[in-house]
Amino acid sequence: MTMLPATPSQTIGPFYGYALPFARGGDMASDAHPEAVTVHGYVLDGEGAPIPDALLEFWQPAPDGSLTGAPGSLRTDPTTGVLLGRDHTGFTGFGRVPTDADGHYALRTLTPPAVGKSAPYLSVCLFARGLLHHLYTRVYFPEHEAAQAADPLLAALPPRRRATLVARGQGPRSYRFDVRIQGGDGDGADAETVFLAFPLG
């Protein structure tokens, strides 16, 4: 079977801000949901400087473990064409949030159930000006230490690298997860977030 060659990636550039973000894009779960958690942090470059023009996308299973997703993340008003954003009557599994001027993002969601042999995680796709091809990573949660010992990805990583994928608890129902696109020299190399590749085609 001949495979078609893929269309190359290009950077998202600096000016996606009026096009891609949508209302409640980062609120995969409602504030009012009793089990909603906040995951927030900074996206940082090779000098540790915050990146104010990154876009993070999140994908995760619904609370029942299903990975089918559901429409309704954007919801466009058919009268005015205005993007209304999700209404939280269902769980779409998709989140999108740009970093602010300080390079900070915040996501509200529900802790995902475990899928397969893995500990629970959020899948992350990162775009930024200066980044020619998006990057994948994952957010794991500190409560699941036992499951993480058996997680096929985490168990294969040295401890300092593994630590870049586990959010830190920061008060009730709040987690800190920074993405460092590029590590420094020497010991600083371990600060670089672990990014993922998937065998395709």
């Binding site: 042999k117 995680y121 590029q182």
Partner: peptide, 25 residues
């Protein structure tokens, strides 16, 4: 791109149940 690319190679995921093999609709 100079300060905005990772230095380490990405870690390959071969898990057939990886969440990333499904996606938003």
């Amino acid at each position: 791109s100079i300060l905005r690319h990772p230095r380490a190679a990405p870690v390959e995921i071969t898990d057939p149940e990886a969440a990333e093999l499904s996606g938003p609709v």
